[in-house]
Simulated scan of single mutants.
Amino acid sequence: MKRLIVYAAVAAALMVGTGARASVTVIGGGLAEACAKAALAGRSEFRFEASCTEAIDQEQLNARDRAGTYVNRGILRLRRQDFVAATKDFNQAVKVKPDLGEAYVNRGAASIGQHRYADGLTDLNKGIQLGVEEPAKAYYNRALAYEGLDDIKSAYFDYQKAVELSPDWSAPKQELARFHVEPKN
Score class of each variant (00 low, 15 high):
residue 116 R to A: 13
residue 56 I to A: 11
residue 118 A to R: 10
residue 43 R to G: 00
residue 9 A to F: 02
residue 72 N to R: 07
residue 103 A to T: 08
residue 81 Q to A: 13
residue 117 Y to S: 01
residue 37 K to H: 11
residue 78 L to N: 02
residue 113 G to L: 07
residue 86 A to M: 09
residue 22 A to I: 15
residue 23 S to G: 04
residue 55 A to K: 10
residue 58 Q to D: 11
residue 64 R to K: 13
residue 112 I to C: 08
residue 40 L to E: 15
residue 88 K to T: 12
residue 127 G to E: 08
residue 111 S to T: 00
residue 34 A to Q: 15
residue 133 E to N: 12
residue 32 A to Q: 03
residue 113 G to H: 05
residue 53 T to G: 02
residue 96 V to G: 02
residue 46 F to Y: 11
residue 116 R to T: 00
residue 30 G to Q: 04
residue 73 R to F: 08
residue 105 V to E: 02
residue 74 G to F: 06
residue 41 A to P: 01
residue 73 R to N: 10
residue 62 N to F: 10
residue 105 V to T: 12
residue 58 Q to F: 08
residue 10 V to A: 12
residue 57 D to G: 00
residue 100 L to C: 05
residue 82 D to M: 12
residue 51 S to N: 14
residue 35 C to G: 03
residue 52 C to F: 06
residue 116 R to Q: 15
residue 72 N to K: 08
residue 51 S to L: 14
residue 133 E to A: 15
residue 130 L to E: 09
residue 90 F to S: 04
residue 96 V to Q: 08
residue 38 A to P: 01
residue 84 V to Q: 12
residue 99 D to N: 14
residue 75 I to C: 07
residue 104 Y to I: 06
residue 18 T to L: 09
residue 98 P to A: 13
residue 79 R to K: 10
residue 117 Y to L: 01
residue 21 R to E: 10
residue 111 S to E: 09
residue 77 R to F: 03
residue 132 V to P: 02
residue 30 G to R: 08
residue 100 L to G: 04
residue 97 K to M: 14
